[in-house]
């Protein structure tokens, strides 16, 4: 089974079966077998032809070029897993049912020829890895946590916590300014909210009054949980995960 996946920005937009087809012409012009309507693609861009048992890719005078695995080509024989780039689109050539689906050698290890054994670390050849990623879809990325604080007292609105360090204190140098009669008791900064890849922490800064989280004084950095209340000199902020 021979297939051609058409992808745009990691999303599969089309899939062609090449089993019954001898020629696939590619271009922006609507008379082609595979029409890619994008200005980075030429009217007549490239053609894939079956010759004997193999598939050949030929550039038919495109303006921006045709690439196989990152290398510009005029003509090339396609192997399973080859990544063809045409403009901003990616075509993945898949040829199943033949031995050794990932071409010569398969998994190579940098450690030694063959597998160094189950407990040894080995490196996956980037070429193979790239092909693997090209074939996979919708690469999920682990989103960093997003959070904000909402004023419950001493201010209005909500503030997104995007910086790695947000300071709360009595002077203008702080990101959030504590107001009110007792604000001079708070430090500069009085409270800091810091971000790590997975969590947020609140810690006390300088100042005569220690901040509180859910009523407990903060002496060491405290990991914030959703809906925690941070209190300093009459100002109350609620921490909310997005």
């Amino acid at each position: 089974m021979v297939r051609l996946l058409v992808k745009f920005k990691d999303r599969r937009i089309k899939e062609l079966s090449l089993d019954q087809i001898e020629t696939v012409s590619i271009g922006r012009n609507s008379r082609h077998n595979l029409v890619i309507d994008n200005y980075a693609v030429s009217e007549n861009h490239a053609v894939i032809k079956k010759e004997g048992n193999r598939y050949h890719l030929k550039d038919t005078g495109s303006k921006n070029g045709t690439f196989v695995n990152g290398t510009p080509i005029k003509k090339a024989v396609l192997k399973n897993g080859d990544v063809i780039t045409i403009g901003n689109h990616v075509l993945v050539f898949l040829d199943r049912g033949r031995a050794d689906p990932f071409g010569r050698g398969g998994l190579k290890t940098s450690a030694m020829p063959g597998d160094p054994g189950p407990k040894h670390t080995m490196f996956m050849e980037s070429e193979l890895y790239r092909k693997m990623l090209a074939e996979s879809e919708d690469v999920p990325t682990i989103a960093e946590p997003q959070a904000h604080v909402v004023f419950l007292a001493g201010g209005n609105g909500k503030i997104k916590l995007t910086q790695s360090l947000v300071t709360i204190g009595r002077t203008k140098r702080c990101d959030i300014i504590v107001k009110g009669f007792f604000s001079f008791l708070s430090g500069d900064p009085a409270v800091t909210i810091s971000k790590t890849p997975q969590h947020y922490y609140v810690n006390s800064g300088r100042g005569w009054v220690k901040p509180k989280v859910n009523g407990k004084a903060v002496r060491m950095p405290v990991r914030l949980k959703d809906m925690d209340k941070i209190e300093i000199c009459g100002m109350i902020l609620q921490f909310t995960m997005d």
Binding site: P118, H120, F123, M124, M132, E135
Partner: peptide, 28 residues
């Protein structure tokens, strides 16, 4: 692992997958 396409599934056992690096210094 989530990025691995169906065709590659079952090719490596989980314990093996923990020892295959996708990046390293000095390889490329």
């Amino acid at each position: 692992r989530k990025k691995i396409p169906k065709s590659m599934e079952g090719r490596f056992s989980p314990s093996k997958m923990a020892h295959i690096l996708t990046r390293a210094v000095g390889i490329h």
